[in-house]
Amino acid sequence: MALTISDLRSKRQVGDRVFRSATLAGGAAILLILALIAYTITNKSTLIFRTAGLDFFTEKRWAPSADKPVFGALSFIFGTAVTATIAIVLAVPVSLGLALFTTQVAPKWLKKPLVALTDMVAVVPSVVFGLWGIIYLAPKLIGFFKNMHNWFGDWPILGSLFGKASAGRTFMTAGLILAVMITPIITSIAREVIETTPQTDCDGALALGATRWEMITGAVIPHSAGGTVGGVMLGLGRAMGETIAAALVIGSSPTITANLFSAGDSLPSVIAFQWGEATSAEKRSALIAMGLTLFVLTLLVNFAATAVVSRAMRRMQGAS
């Protein structure tokens, strides 16, 4: 059977067309789902914005069962910001160190198992982290918190951060768990980005007499800074949105305080715990509005991450 060229071409065109519409449908479906989620939660949260207005964001009190119910999201937004900040502060140095170690310093036989291990931490389900937190970490941390308070309680700034401690489920506990959870994400992105550093740059630096450390600071870090910042922001988005692990160890007590050893509450945690008994329309709406707040915050962080990464990419293309 001989095929003519035009036969081949039309066959290929059919395949192309099928492939193109399949990918297009996939891409459109993601956008559509995102749009529908945004529409539904915005729609369902209008009730609380109509009754409470923007006070919803500035009100500290959360009293859904009171005679005159008060719905304020401020202490939950505060808790989300605090725990995510702790997580980032703790996770970034570890992740960057780990990424630089695996790519630049580690002997070759160690590299693969290290990469596999960090990636394995990323696939541990978050509820497992949460259970580990409540069964092991939180009880063990009580003594540590008390010591920190005793040592640093009188220092000017640390004193207010490391305040009185009496229990194990706190902002700090949640921040620690989140830090462990986002470390593999930041590490693997940082590693990928660092590996894109042209070998010629590294070789050049070394040939000019740079030490390994000077090579890292002079060639690797400038090249990968943008992408790494993007990875950190993805980690931040994950830390803010993480629900169950944080919910289990944060203490679930809406609180605004500088004391990191105090129990608090976060947006995803209150939604998870109080949705089941949210029988009044207003409370449902308030919880959905908190979901909307979280959605918008994580979207903003992710957009910012994308913007940073693409700017870094443009700069790198210009350089090479």
Binding site: I30, S310, M313
Partner: peptide, 26 residues
């Protein structure tokens, strides 16, 4: 460029998933 497009995809996915996962968790 592959790695960077990978990151971009990741971030897009994360953007889509962050809402998705939080709702399913809920």
């Amino acid at each position: 460029s592959l790695a960077i497009s990978g990151i971009l995809t990741l971030s897009l996915l994360a953007a889509a998933c962050s809402s998705d996962s939080s709702s399913s968790d809920t």
